[in-house]
Structures are given as structure tokens and as C-alpha cells.
Design a protein around this nucleic acid. Structure first.
Lengths: 190, 190
DNA sequence: CCTACCGATCGGTAGG
DNA sequence: CCTACCGATCGGTAGG
């Protein structure tokens, strides 16, 4: 037998998988236990409640996006390049951690009000990075001068966040996807 | 007392409201009864099951989009104009019927496999109208010749479907929103 | 991580 | 549309 005991991390990962595919309310603790090969009640040695699990999954998603934004900021100052890095980093997060992303985007409503507010604030800060990059670029002449940075940020993030819903490796691979999104977006900003 | 009995239509509308805000699995029949001022068990004189309700809400959403596409096709042959009409019509559906749209977009996974396939097929046919409009426009020179109609359709629909998540009448009204989206999209297609 | 269990709530039915 | 109810399942606890 090579079977090992599950860690809290394993539990959160499996929870993300189920929350992403069936939704938080569509997933029971017994479902999750089955996924890990143990009884539903045994999960309570790893977590204090079902919502505790949701918080953990959602925060993982939030952290990934934040880390990606920080990398883009650290590595690229010029607006066009920074935006490309933001787009590329976002796509990596979506494709590398689809379950956390989907839960982060779709299941925040199941959180209690205080936690939900915190998560939405994190989302806003992330969007703000896109907005400021666009505003700087418009001011410097990299993008169209009449650009509305707030709306453009929303449109770009709409495209990025939807990727999880339709993309699966095929004729178009990850780099191709990044190139297509970047191209579509940059045309709009000129 | 002006209170009237609820019709099946009332029940479906209220169900859309709750499914959109809490999700299908996050809504109980008793919740829905409370919303309508009657007991959960009384709902079964209007519907045969909870899933019956979900199907009805989702199909309403699907029908609205289909009707919008048919109108665009009937009224505009020229690709640029037809696309504008598709965008405007889609935004109207999203803003006039947000609950049905959200349920249509987010809760299809809760449907049984057969119904879900039917709904996804309807979604595909709708997307196909966008794709064909873009392909025709690219062939005729209205849009860039190297345009990928499939990807462009996805990107445009990503922007349109996300509107429900962030738009609420403010400084930007419905017509302003339509103009901004159309502008952003058309720049990308040139 | 398991066994044995709890009260609450779930979708749904019978019979008016 | 209500009353009275059903078996199943829910999140969670006690005690090992």
C-alpha cells in the first residue's frame, strides 16, 4: 500500500475541483470525502467547516492573480509591455489553476458577507492594476488618447476570465491563445 | 385584498430571481415558496419538479437570445450593421432579463445531461450567428482580412456576457454602454 | 481517520 | 393552495 494520509492542502485542492464543477452548494462534504477516499466526517480533522474550505480555495485563486500582477509590475514599466505581461500572467493562472479561478469567480456569493467583501476588494485591486496600466499608456501615447481605462480594463478582463469556459488545448495552444488575445486587445487600444 | 394567485409564469420568474442570486443548488423550494408567499409544497401544483423550473428559466434565456439573433438577421444584411444589431440586442437581453441570462449562463451544469446538451447546442447556434457575420465581413472587406471569426466571436461574447456582472446604470447608461462596446469591438476588427 | 450519531433541511407526495 | 407528512441527505459533533 502506497496510500498516504491526506493533508489539508489535498483537501483544499479536491474541494476546488468539486466546487468548480458542481458549485459550492452542489457539493456535499460526503462527496468531497469520497473524492479523497475517506468519510465525510473525517474532513473535520482538516477543516473547521465547509465554508472554511470555500474561503481557502477562493483565497488561493486571489493570491495567484495578485502574484501575477506583482510580477508584471516588477518586471515591466512600459505600459504596452506591462499589459502584455498582465495578459500572459492572467492566462497562465486561468490555465494552470482552473478550479481555484472558477471558484474565485463564481462562488464568492456563497461566502459570508465579510469574507465576500474582502474577496471583492482583492478583485478590485487587481483590476486597478490593469486600469492604471491603461491610463498610463493612454497618457504617454502608447494607447489611444481617448481611451476609457476603466471600461477597457473591464473588457479585457471579461475576455480573460471567460477563457476557462471555452479553451482546451487543441489546434490553438497556450502561446497561440496569448498572441490572439493580445492582438485583439491591442488593436482596440490603438 | 388585491392578492392574486400565482401563475406558473410567476413561479418561473421568481425562480429565475433566486437561481440567479443564490444558484440552483443554493435555492430550496421552500425559499421559493416564501418568495411567492406560499408553502414550498404548493409549488408542485405549478411544476412537476425543481429541475422542471430550472429548465423553464434556462429556456427563457435561450429563447431571448435566439429571438435577438433572428431580429438582427432579418433587419440587417451588411455585416457591420448586423454585428452592431447583434451587440445591441444582446445587451438588451442581458439588461432586461438579467436573472434568466445569469441562470442560462451559470446554472446549465445543474441540468441533466440531455437537457444540458440541448441548451449548449442552442448556445452554439447563437454563437454561430456571430461567427458567420464576422466571416462574411472579413470576406467582404468590412473587417480585417486575417480575422479569425471563431475567436473574435468568442471574445465579443465574453465581453457581452460579462456585462451582467458589473454594469448598473450610472454615469454610463445603456446607449452609452452599447456605443462603448461597439467601439471597442470594431477597433479590434479593423 | 473511523464509528455512531444529531437535529435540521431537503425535494416531493397524499389528500383535501 | 394548505396540512401533514415521508425517506434521504445535509453539515457537523463526540469519542475514540
Amino acid at each position: 500500500m502506497v496510500t498516504t494520509r491526506n493533508t489539508r492542502d489535498d483537501v483544499i485542492t479536491a474541494a476546488g475541483r468539486l466546487f468548480a464543477s458542481r458549485g459550492y452548494h452542489g457539493t456535499s462534504m460526503r462527496d468531497l470525502g469520497r473524492e479523497l477516499g475517506l468519510h465525510g466526517s473525517s474532513l473535520y480533522s482538516h477543516v473547521t467547516s465547509k465554508e472554511d474550505l470555500l474561503v481557502a480555495v477562493v483565497e488561493r485563486g486571489a493570491d495567484r492573480f495578485q502574484a501575477s500582477a506583482e510580477r508584471a509590475i516588477a518586471e515591466h514599466a512600459e505600459p504596452t509591455e506591462r499589459l502584455r505581461s498582465l495578459v500572459s500572467g492572467h492566462i497562465d493562472v486561468v490555465l494552470d489553476h482552473p478550479d481555484e479561478v472558477k471558484t474565485f469567480l463564481d462562488e464568492a456569493r456563497a461566502l459570508d458577507a465579510r469574507t465576500r467583501r474582502r474577496v471583492l476588494a482583492a478583485r478590485d485591486r487587481y483590476e486597478q492594476v490593469f486600469r492604471e496600466t491603461l491610463a498610463t499608456g493612454a497618457a504617454q501615447g502608447s494607447f489611444a488618447g481617448d481611451l476609457d481605462p476603466k471600461l477597457a480594463a473591464i473588457f479585457i478582463l471579461s475576455i480573460l476570465n471567460a477563457i476557462e469556459r471555452w479553451f482546451h488545448d487543441g489546434p490553438l495552444d497556450r502561446d497561440g491563445l496569448k498572441a490572439e488575445v493580445t492582438d485583439f486587445v491591442e488593436r482596440s487600444l490603438r
